[in-house]
Computed example of a mutant assay.
Amino acid sequence: MPGASQADAAASFDPLRPRLIRIAYRMLGSVADAEDVVQDAFLRWLDTDRAEVREPLAFLTRVVTRLCLDVLKSARRQRETYVGPWLPEPVLEEGEDEVEDVTLPLLLALERLSPLERAAFLLHDVFGVSFDEIAETIGRDAAACRQLASRARTHVRASRPRFDMPKERGLEIAHAFFAASRSGDMTALQALLAADVAVHSDGGGKKPAAMKPIFGIEDVMKLQAGLAHYFAETMSKLVRFAYINGLPGFITIERDDTLQTTALDIRDGQIVGIYVTRNPDKLRHIEEASLH
């Protein structure tokens, strides 16, 4: 019976769906694309002789990874025409004790890797998949997969998360940054920023945002001074503070009801990176979760 078959497939697939979505999201940097890929994997699972599959998770990880590699081929071409800096879609941590294993800076570092390097690194270093299994997944031998992961590791080493700060302290700094930036307290704001701080803002050509990243405390403070006048004229509505892609930050509603996420990369107690997402296409899932 088709209905019974679909129910059986869902019963074995659904417990694995969260992990498969995490894999797909880290490969693609898009929540919607990750969900589409995993749904496609489910349709393939329906058509599979499931009695012959000894390890469903390994099988479905292979399916999802291969689908992601196909998506990345077209995504790279789309990124070449993207307006302004590209940031991955923000994902909120919901669990009190949850610690994100792939932070926003690491996701950006993964963007600079080849699709195969990204797959080898994520599957082995983040999800603990063996190189023999990765070899079967991406069609390379295990030694080549080790090399791919090693090259990726070298590129992303500086972007790996450093959990040397309690989450509460991260949120305290986010609170202080929000208060100083919105009130125009430039002295308090400057004290929070590292000398080499950088601002990345993603409006995707659909909302106002800087067209290039801004580097260095001098230029960042000039930007913040200009924004202070903007904030004085239009009050931001704070939705809530949260951890966003492993970084402390906050969600706000700005002028013209623009939803915005701000994530702060903090090292040694100072902010080294400010990541602002304003592209509404990347915030629909945040809007549904936070405002409804």
Rank of each mutant, 00 (worst) to 15 (best):
I271D: 00
N245R: 07
R255N: 14
M165D: 11
D256P: 06
D164L: 15
R157S: 12
I251N: 06
A179Y: 08
T234R: 07
M186C: 12
F250I: 10
M165S: 06
P213R: 04
A232K: 10
Q224Y: 10
L171H: 11
G184H: 00
I214K: 03
T277R: 02
D202T: 08
L189H: 00
R151W: 08
L283P: 05
A232C: 04
V272D: 05
S159D: 12
D164Q: 11
Q147K: 09
G205E: 07
G273K: 02
D202F: 08
G273S: 01
S201L: 09
D196C: 03
A263F: 06
A149Y: 00
F178P: 08
A228L: 02
G170A: 10
L189C: 02
G204K: 02
D256V: 03
G216H: 07
S236Y: 11
V199W: 02
K222Q: 09
A158H: 13
L247Y: 00
G226T: 10
R278C: 09
Q270C: 12
V220L: 03
I253D: 10
Q260L: 10
M165Q: 08
A210G: 06
P280K: 05
A194F: 04
D164I: 15
I266L: 05
S181M: 10
I274F: 05
T277P: 01
A198D: 12
T252P: 12
G184I: 02
V199H: 01
P166S: 13
N279G: 11
E233A: 15
I173Q: 02
G246V: 03
